[in-house]
């Protein structure tokens, strides 16, 4: 499903984030990416989401190289991906409902279907009844869960999470990891970058460790 072929990424600042990565993920697989900060975990995910382009090598999704994707095709490709950031990037002038509904509105979904899907997503992340709340009134964990609900609501085939539990207490972190595992059960390919080794080990999934390049 996701394939890295001799991928290197050098930022314009001269920093070498990834060097010669070869990696294959099967469809429906769930993997953890660990490593020290600065080892390139985020960069790896960004390459998949086309937020960055590799300096060398190529990333293939479903056998197709991302470098062959035209500019106009990127939005459509991104809709198949749910990206969860460490900072959830919520829109603070809109309610929880409207934040989660955003991907569906972008796809042009009707009102009733949107409502149904958002309710289902809220239910999955345990925020039922908080639709009309605004993000400022939420705790860090709740914000993160809204971010996850927004990433999930469009039923993406690929879920990318960059330190999704970074700001959360251990119990909540565990909960959220199980949520990801659930989505994985439903068939999504999941990549999670995390430096929480204990948590990663408990999940008993394939783990990829990135070494920092010098």
């Amino acid at each position: 499903m996701i394939e890295f072929k001799q991928v290197s990424k050098k930022y314009p600042t001269g920093q070498l984030a990834l060097y010669n990565i070869n990696l294959t993920l099967e469809a429906g697989e769930m993997v953890f990416i660990t490593g020290h900060s600065g080892a390139g975990k985020s960069t790896l995910l960004k390459l998949v989401a086309m937020l960055e382009r590799p300096s060398k090598g190529e990333v293939l999704i479903g056998g197709r190289s991302l470098s062959k994707l035209g500019r106009g095709q990127i939005p459509n490709y991104r809709r198949r991906i749910g990206f969860i950031f460490q900072d959830p990037h919520l829109l603070y002038d809109r309610s929880v409902f409207d934040n989660i509904a955003l991907p569906l509105r972008i796809a042009g979904m009707g009102q009733s279907e949107t409502r149904r899907r958002v309710q289902a997503a809220l239910d999955k992340v345990g925020l039922t009844g908080r639709e009309t709340t605004f993000p400022l009134m939420l705790s860090a964990g709740e914000k993160q869960r809204v971010g996850i609900a927004r990433a999930m609501v469009n039923k993406p085939t690929i879920i990318l999470a960059d330190e999704p539990t970074g700001n959360l207490d251990p119990e909540l972190a565990q909960d959220i990891m199980f949520t990801f595992a659930q989505f994985n059960e439903l068939g999504a390919t999941v990549m999670i970058a995390s430096h929480d080794h204990g948590l990663v080990e408990r999940m008993k999934k394939r783990t990829i460790v990135l070494q920092k390049v010098d």
Binding site: E26, A27, G28, P103, K155, P156, L186, A188
Partner: peptide, 17 residues
């Protein structure tokens, strides 16, 4: 790329399409 031979299938693409 071939699908792995498990019961998991890719979830339905977003309904809007």
């Amino acid at each position: 790329m071939a699908n792995p031979s498990n019961k998991k299938t890719a979830p339905k693409r977003n309904a809007a399409s």
